[in-house]
Amino acid sequence: MAIIPQVGRKKIRVRLLLFSITLFLWLGVFLHLFPVWWTLVTSISPYHEVYKLPPSFFPRHPTLFPYKFLFSAAMQTGVTIRQGERIVTLHFGYSQFYPIWVYLKNSVILTGGIMVFQIPITALVAYSLSKLHSPRWNRILFIFFIGTMLIPYQISLVPSYLLLKNFPFAFRTSSLRGINFLDTYWAVILPGMYSAFNCLLFKGYFDGIPESIIQAARLDGASELGIIRRIILPTSKPVFAVVSYFTFTGAWNSFMWPLIVFKKAKLFPLPVFLYEIQASVSDIKNPEYARYLGGGIPLVMAAGIIQSIPVFIMFIIFREQLMKGIQLRGFK
């Protein structure tokens, strides 16, 4: 309500302008939601409505077969069909899959693990930087804790991989035998235990809490832990909400690092599973076969919907806080 003149709103030109802006914005909303809707439609379409050109814009015969297939043991064993005289077993190309429960469980463990460790560890670092350290140490520690954010992540991919393979030596010699964390959940959780970006968000918010409240509590004889519990935590709910949401979506969507550290298909989180299954489904040249394998693309889209549901739920839960949280000082 600022740029368009307040006076003369009734003029036809101003009205037309306002109307076209509104139209443009709703078009953006529509285009943004369209892929979500299209994923949903495809996921409940039978294969013959999907494998044709032009495709159906509405599912004429909706079916839950792709969803049922995702949760069934047929993901692993393949499907046996009779083709004339012969009995054929159909698989997804070269890869082996498990029922989607396995991948859901992996994603929940990895995301949960990262959140459980990262949020308290990062919040404590930020609080100590904001309120507790001496000014001299603060400057050094700030660079130590935030500096890693400014450096492109690829440079530490190879060394992190080597480090997790032979923890904590990284280098391979006959005498230095370390622990191999690859192909365990720790390979993802350990490096995710601290986040410089979230530390900055926390610190920005903690900086806004007046020092005098903490001093007053100290004079009243509150312990340091008591100050965190009774003063810092209750006043910092918005920033915890925003950080939890960011951490959740970041961990839930993370693709490259799990792709690198997990070779066992049983450990894949959902994004890696989605990548693998869409590659396998694209390999099915014959739509007739796709029909039996959960419908082909509908199966992939169903997996996409299942992956999106938790993100959506988190968004609903944190919606209020997120919309408020955009005014957090850390964003300025």
Partner: peptide
């Protein structure tokens, strides 16, 4: 209303895959 609709998220991999399908 627009902000809520706009920021309704989709898991990023699903978004990429539906575009690949487009």
């Amino acid at each position: 209303i627009m902000m809520i609709l706009w920021f309704i998220p989709m898991a990023s991999m699903s978004g990429i895959i539906v575009w690949k399908w487009f």
